[in-house]
Design a protein around this nucleic acid. Structure first.
Lengths: 217, 217
DNA sequence: CGGATTCTAGACCGATCGGTCGAGACGGCT
DNA sequence: AGCCGTCTCGACCGATCGGTCTAGAATCCG
């Protein structure tokens, strides 16, 4: 049985030092491997092989592959939120937050390509035991993950509505269009590594500024 | 060996009557099955079972699973192009073609959900023998498929540039943003069947009109 | 030091996958 | 009738998957 607190270092989510180190190592190796050979080829055996441990070690630290996948996704989301949330908080206006959201997200994608490709591959390839994609499963779970809710741009559009900065618009639909347009950068990068993601981000800033700002009379 | 021309009915792509009927039946069953249980569960065996034939029959008419998948995708794309291309051709202006492109695509998605979900599932789950998604593989093939090129919205933005209807803009990036934003409707529908895809289409028309039209001075 | 716990290795399991093969049913043609 | 190409069936193959189990090494802690 895994105890709720090891002994070596106190803080750290109720896990042994070895446990945390191994989990981080395995998650890191899994991200690299998914990025290199695709999720479909990233079996538990190969992940273990890359980490230099036996397959059973992976399944000792993660109950099953789904838990490992969720750990990978959570890890990357937290990293992204660490960059994006402060950038948004530094802006006062809704338009400013919107631009910061887009720019910081594209900057993260551009500078964290292995993680971005891994997320894309997992979101596309992985299915839960019920046969759902992770985004489908998340939308069916009662309590949405904190970082996912914080990274939903719908709040920005609602804010712009309340302040009168933006034209009357259906915030949820704008949020979907923006989210998928940003994700499109990852798709495009996977097809063309020379794609200029930052320039694309600037163009998205222009597009959604023009599309949301209240017209000057 | 499959002869290059059967004997029964002349026209029809150099295939026997039985051959064409079986292929159409198998493709249809595969679309239904992928829509219902996901591509990951749609093995050749289950596709054959649904069609009421032996697995080897499927692999007799299609060299391997990849060829079957390409037949499915091609079939759906042709159906979509049949709706969208005339709608676009009926418009004179670039703005008109852009709106027609968006509306006809969303209308197709809304009225052909099994096909849309099947495409989404295949684009996300399927990998070629080289480990590439179909869109990656297509972007690496020298000669792009005819229907895919015709359905690329980049030409619309280039047209609007030439006629001066649109502001100066990077057409390829607008095309990526539009394409992924439209595809976002399928993702959203897979999460929420009650999502109003047609209203989303109208909002996309507004967004991309505002984002592309030259400002009146 | 010594017992309990945590961690790891490697063999093993049943299931399923895409794909092959040989035998035979079917149907048009002469 | 009898031939021959088209088509179908079901058994079979090797590989790989996620996951389990047992036995032993490493580590912690009193």
């Amino acid at each position: 049985m895994r105890s709720s607190e090891g002994g070596s270092s106190g803080a750290g989510g109720g896990r042994t030092f070895t446990e945390r180190a191994r989990r981080a190592q395995i998650v890191g190796c899994a991200i690299e491997l998914v990025n290199e050979v695709g999720f479909g080829q990233a079996s538990v055996a190969r992940i273990a092989q890359r980490a230099g441990v036996a397959k059973s070690v992976v399944l000792y630290h993660f109950a099953n592959k789904e838990e490992l996948v969720r750990a990978i996704v959570g890890d990357i989301f937290v990293t992204g939120a660490t960059v994006m949330l402060p950038a948004m908080a530094a802006e006062e206006t809704a338009a400013g937050k919107l631009a910061a959201y887009i720019r910081s997200n594209l900057a993260f994608i551009n500078s964290h390509r292995p993680e971005s490709f891994a997320i894309l591959d997992i979101m596309t390839s992985f299915r839960t035991q019920e046969g759902l994609r992770l985004d489908e499963a998340a939308s069916r779970e009662a309590r949405p993950t904190a970082e996912m809710a914080n990274l939903d741009p719908v709040g920005i559009f609602e804010l712009g509505q309340r302040t009168g900065e933006f034209r009357p618009l259906p915030a949820p639909m704008l949020a979907i269009a923006l989210r998928t347009a940003i994700d499109g950068a990852v798709w495009q990068l996977s097809r063309d590594p020379d794609f200029d993601a930052l320039a694309y981000g600037e163009e998205l800033v222009t597009i959604f500024d023009l599309a949301s700002r209240r017209q000057e009379p």
